[in-house]
Design a protein around this nucleic acid. Structure first.
Lengths: 259, 259
DNA sequence: ACGGCACCCTTACGTCGTAAGCATACAACG
DNA sequence: CGTTGTATGCTTACGACGTAAGGGTGCCGT
């Protein structure tokens, strides 16, 4: 083929100019491009080919720096988690740290609706997630939480952040709903769904207040658990050292209360 | 073509025997088959072709009863939600209903890991979800919750169920983790992640107790909000009729406390 | 007996993730 | 300066996906 001569200008705009002008492909550059692409066009548009195009590169070229699409997605999760790892780096007030973390994470996830879905779908744990967990656990242990309660708390906080935001986003994205649901939302089904209709009646639903309520619920609840633990330790010195039953007895009777 | 004569035996094993022996295709039959397929082989295996094969039918035959794959997925969400709509149908004890709902939903979602992911990805609201909301809201209004607080509570309960379960499942599916994360889990990084290492140390993590703790946290928190609302109404009769500020003032100051 | 009509099937298109192999440009060395 | 090794990115190709368009077959009311 006469490619080697004829291809010279083509090379200039691809490999040649590329090699010279374009920064080399990197895992990090790929992940950031993926994040921007998802921001702009949603998770569905995040395709290996599309992602390559975004970087001025063919799809298969990505595979030198990334194990596959799953790897990109996992990396993306950790990039997002990095946005709320360790806020208030100086403080050792665990409650303030929890409030700040929940608030920041909530905002980050609202700003990137695709991230919630991604976190739900991929169980990835990256370095930023470790940082996040370590930061929170350190404050809680320092504040006198038992290791068990600290662990429970982390899981509760984690689940609360993604779960609540997810549910909020789900309601926001609910533009294309069935006719029946739309009718209920318009309040035309008072006979069939009286409670929902009554609750929906007042138009101005305050999202921020709702999230604040959830935050209070979590922080206050954890604080009361921590106090209960502390008093139990001081009144029953046998348990002060051991770690056998640090959870309030109330928790043991609640689940499966009826069905 | 000689197909019309040669196809007769083929017809017997397909359309013929089919038409006679097989119940006709239905939206509901499709959704149940989809649920079973997802149960058996996961969400990734849920393909229109595969789903058709499961019903002894070609992929395109499904499109007469279902708008497309999205429609199947949305329907699937509502099928799952139907499994926890309105437990304790007789009771009017809102707290018991909330506890039962959370418990049942938690079990249902743990049994169908794909459902969590699906609910996270699709904002569908079907009839079963309406039933679920109506049932909960009715009890709460009956118990004296203001419409606003009832609404907030529903969202909190909803987010808690999926969020907590999601997070629990995520940890369970974390078999394929990076080498660094595995090392941390084995406790070989005490210097870098001391708090995590300390917290992970005791091996028997009680999932049931943790969920019970979360349930208590939600129910007790909502109960205290309800009480605060009630006393506020009785001490300040101007607000007894109106519904302007039914939320505890505490919620208004909490969010964005630090960053 | 027959016409209409639900059903369901066949074929086809564009897109996806990615395996395998090739071409090119740069770096180190004689 | 010429040679060669190596890393990097490109080309081609395959199978699977969702689904649009159109064709055939059996059942039911008349």
């Amino acid at each position: 083929m006469a490619r080697s001569t004829e291809a010279t200008p083509e090379r200039d705009e691809r490999a040649g100019a590329t090699r010279a002008s374009r920064p080399p492909l990197t895992r990090e550059r790929i992940l950031l491009a993926a994040r921007d692409l998802a921001d702009r066009e949603g998770l569905a548009a995040l395709t290996m080919r599309r992602l390559g195009a975004e970087l001025g590169v063919e799809a298969m070229s990505l595979y030198g720096h990334v194990r596959g699409k799953d790897d990109v997605l996992d990396g993306l999760v950790d990039v997002v988690v990095g946005d709320w790892a360790d806020p208030l780096p100086g403080s050792d007030d665990w409650a303030a740290v929890v409030r700040a973390t929940m608030s920041v994470a909530h905002e980050v996830l609202l700003a990137r609706p695709w991230a919630c879905e991604l976190i739900a779908a991929r169980p990835a744990v990256g370095r930023n997630r470790l940082r996040f967990a370590e930061s929170l656990q350190a404050r809680m242990l320092g504040a006198g939480f038992s290791p068990q309660l600290a662990r429970h708390s982390l899981h509760i906080i984690d689940g609360t952040i993604t779960g609540f935001t997810l549910q909020e986003l789900r309601r926001a994205t609910l533009t294309q709903m069935g006719e029946e649901v739309a009718a209920v939302a318009r309040g035309e089904r008072r006979d069939e769904y009286p409670a929902i209709t009554a609750v929906i009646a007042d138009a101005d639903h305050d999202h921020a207040a709702e999230f604040a309520l959830m935050t209070d619920l979590v922080v206050d609840g954890l604080e009361s658990m921590r106090r209960r633990e502390a008093t139990a330790r001081s009144t029953d010195p046998r348990r002060a050292a051991g770690a056998d039953a640090p959870i309030s007895p109330k928790c043991l009777r609640s689940a499966r209360e009826g069905r």
